[in-house]
Nucleic acid binder design. Sequence first.
DNA 1: TTTCGTGCAAAACCTTTGCAAAGTG
DNA 2: CACTTTGCAAAGGTTTTGCACGAAA
Lengths: 158, 158
Amino acid sequence: MPHCCAQHAPDNALANALEQLRAHEMRVTEPRKAMLGILTREHGPFSAEELHHKLKGKSCDVVTVYRSLQAMEEIGVVRRCDFGDNTYRYEINHGDHHHHHIVCRTCRSVQVLDLCAVGKLERIAREMGYENITHTLEIFGTCPKCAKKQVRPDKHAA
Amino acid sequence: MPHCCAQHAPDNALANALEQLRAHEMRVTEPRKAMLGILTREHGPFSAEELHHKLKGKSCDVVTVYRSLQAMEEIGVVRRCDFGDNTYRYEINHGDHHHHHIVCRTCRSVQVLDLCAVGKLERIAREMGYENITHTLEIFGTCPKCAKKQVRPDKHAA
DNA sequence: TTTCGTGCAAAACCTTTGCAAAGTG
DNA sequence: CACTTTGCAAAGGTTTTGCACGAAA
């Protein structure tokens, strides 16, 4: 997949992320570099388990993955997504240029929606005195494939 | 709190919800009536535990609360919110007229944002062939109160 | 009566925590 | 060297599952 702009090319994104760690007085460790390497190179949010699994060689404990993701989420290096299956997933946070997801209610497949229109809500929040504002937005639906083979489309439909 | 319109007055909302259960061939049981009574009368999303706690007298098992909420979410009677603390919370689903929340990153207080601007994204999803489309949108920030007494505002800031 | 919902108990699951050892700046 | 991060083991907490019983349509 070609990248929209230089800033989001894997290498730059990785360098950026590491820079953010330093800016927040966080240590740049092997596990963190490895995790961010994956998150900047591969696309699509991963759960802590999935990410840990991808670290095969230079493996570290799953706990470290959890802790790192949490720390990096707090400083905005990664973004946390909730796809409604009791498991949080993380993706690299490209700042302004972020997107959202459509999650199939049935097969849990994920597609990207490269558009965000939440500016109005964030502005209101800011006017209410909130700081460090972020948001999460996920869209759910039944994907075309699943809609077709649905046995009883109305039973579990909204 | 006065209600925006008759449709969202507690009694009507409750009747509506029960009607939706029947429309989906779901049984109208005591626990479900009680749960929906609370969800239509009291405001603010509740976790399964919280809801169960509010059922004191006509109590049922927590498991039933979990199962009912899940079932009612699937048919769109309630909406599930993720406030980033590993606990799902549910609120009655007023269909079109829904709102969103600002959650304080620090004290977890919640305020309502009575506005939704996700139409564009939902439209795109529909054009992609998705059906039964819904979404979740939560805004996070540090509330004014917490921003003031923050010891090291930059350490955990985005 | 047939199907769906509930209770109870137990499991599954993801995530967090404590503490000593190791690594980073 | 001071401070942060990691590993391991264990706990925590929420949510799910199985099965027999009870309730709704």
